[in-house]
Design a protein around this nucleic acid. Structure first.
Lengths: 223, 223, 223, 223
DNA sequence: CATGAATGAGCCTTCATTCAT
DNA sequence: GATGAATGAAGGCTCATTCAT
């Protein structure tokens, strides 16, 4: 349905919408890469997911490897930009907002993005194929992770500076904040069973922040 | 040192212990599985790590797949037993200990085990190969994770029951507690660079627990 | 220039002559066949040389193989006819001409034809693809080579009979006469470098005949 | 037969003589390369000629391309050295020998080598694959042809200098001398039919030289 | 007529596994 | 036991050919 041009009244027929091809293929690739790993994923299966034959895939991607790289880039670059924009807004408007408010806003964005299965698959894919694609790892670390973690670090430091937070080690604090998401992503992608209820990333984050920030804050009258 | 027979009184000296072969092979397998992924790991390379030739590996393991399973089992079963023992001790002696003390003790064991690189590799291996080895995933989840998480759940519930902890959702709390370790394991195994300083799992845990437990505890006089 | 229609009186200007398409295609085919060999030549590249798209080629030729056959036939048949005509003239008018004169005339035609690069490519193409296209080889041998060599044989025998030449073995003599050309064709097509000066086939022939005929002739007063 | 170790009395069994493997494979490769061209030659067929399976070939050669290069090198380097040695001897002892004698000696060696079918196949192989393997062409031209032609040039020039030969153009003379062989090599490899009698390269050469040298020599009393 | 997206047969190459020595 | 030569299944990739538009 999505890969057909919508029939308009005066157009006699539908036809293929070739512009969607690369995306269709990458969808299939993601499925197979996650299901079997990059090395064991077969181009023919990827093609089948997109309703194409083996050879056609090569009209759009020159190799399996290129598909992996494109996949990561397409999914991850928007997220990176998203986060970067937030970081910019935070530093300019931050005067009015507490560090807690900023952290909650940032992690809120992250958690809502992670409710998308495709985004959720990316960390697992990277983890799985790290050994064979060091450049991909570097790209991911430098363009995505460090950017995001750097933004968090900034806010935590700000909180410490203003006396809102206790003087914790930011390196550790970041891992405490992010780890919960990673854990859940892995759980969903690796261990969760078919029937298991989906856990909302947002709720998980809320609870986590409630507790963690409660623990980190310089308390006046903790509840 | 480990692959030498311990000198007994009447035996003159250390010598090769052929019974260590399987372990040597599994060491090599772990390296290669982590470096290239299961599918791309070559038996010949694994054999080389153990100073053996390709064919010899098959005297000890009937297939590459069996090596993976053995590897997980051997590394993970002791940990599972370790944790199970702790759980037993906890329930019997628990009267004397606060939930916080018990949690710290349990996570202390976990973090010290995770300082061993081989143990650290296991979660990454499982994550990478989950798609191709669902039984392995099941085994890991049922024999290791659920056991460990179950023990944590028990203690958290106990803390809530006794009024030591606020009435948090245990499912979320567990992920908050464990996520930090997972995050660090992934960081070390995937993103850390050659020169990066090694982060002690124990210190990471201490800081994490200080904050998290501070956040979760029903405070009388928070620091 | 060649692929434009000759201006006729009432036609205003040069324009594309679609009937030239097959020739354009064959030109491209010859280039690619020579550059990469028949098996490795890609239809798409051939089409590009003719300014057409892949599919269009199939409107004119039903397969790559057919293109090769057509190519050989079109280039070689005119040469064959050319030589045959000469042979006819030779036998009728020969009374007036010495064997030497006739040989020089024949090889003069051959050498001037071989100054055309397309013609020069044919022997190389045949040599390269002989294994895969035995019918082509047969056609070439029977329709072109034997005809030409037969004509030469006739003249040499005539020279021997009339006492103009010494009684050489015609089989060997023919190879001595023709080999020089073949050698040069191969040199040009295979070994000559970009900057190398073009060697005139005509001059090569003149020198070769001067010497060879001097060697073969029953001398009265050799120079 | 050749690739088995000869059974000796006290040795119970024969076994493979693996040292011959590379040669066996190259023999098969030459056959297939000549029969179908490099691109169309299938590794499996090459292996079959050597009584091996597809995969085994890759224990000895890392790719089809490498097989081609090895093939040319192994056949051609000995010939090159052979000719170089002759050239050396010629220049040192030449005082006693006429240019004619030297030329006859040199071409005698060449023609006897060319009676070996493997050697005869090399020029055809080079010609066929020139387009795809320019380095091979360069190697062949620089290491073999130029060496051989250079030696001939030297002798011809010497003959001219001493007044033994007329002052011909050496470039043309060389082609006249060598072309006959090339012609015959092509004839044998491309056009000759199954039943055709084998032409001796030596006899061909003798006749050719008789005539050509007779034509080139400054005659006192030509026959 | 032309196009070029789509197909799928075909082959090189890799490597887990076997087995004769 | 140990070896490593040999096997052959499997899959990435290319490209001649087809055909809907």
């Amino acid at each position: 349905m999505q890969d057909l041009i919508k029939e308009t009244e005066d157009q006699p027929k539908w036809r293929r919408k070739p512009e969607r091809r690369p995306d269709d293929i990458l969808d299939g690739a993601l499925r197979e890469f996650r299901a079997r790993g990059f090395a064991a994923a077969r181009i023919e299966d990827i093609a089948k997911h997109a309703g194409l034959s083996k050879g056609t895939v090569y009209l759009y991607f020159s190799s399996k490897e290129e598909m992996l790289k494109e996949l990561v880039k397409r999914t991850v670059v928007p997220l990176a930009e998203n986060m970067k924009n937030m970081a910019t807004i935070l530093s300019s408007e931050a005067e009015n907002k507490s560090a807690e408010q900023i952290l909650r806003a940032m992690l809120n964005v992250l958690s809502s993005r992670l409710d998308d299965e495709k985004v959720q698959s990316m960390p697992l894919l990277i983890i799985s194929e790290a050994g064979n694609f060091p450049e991909l790892v570097n790209f991911y670390r430098d363009e995505v992770i460090n950017m995001a973690l750097g933004a968090l670090e900034m806010v935590i430091n700000k909180g410490i500076r203003t006396g809102e937070f206790r003087p914790v080690k930011t390196y550790h604090a970041i891992r405490s904040l992010i780890g919960t998401f990673i854990m859940q992503v892995i759980w969903n992608g690796v261990f969760a069973r078919k029937g298991d209820p989906k856990i909302s990333m947002g709720k998980l984050m809320d609870d986590h922040l409630d507790i963690y920030l409660n623990g980190i804050k310089v308390s006046k009258e903790p509840k």
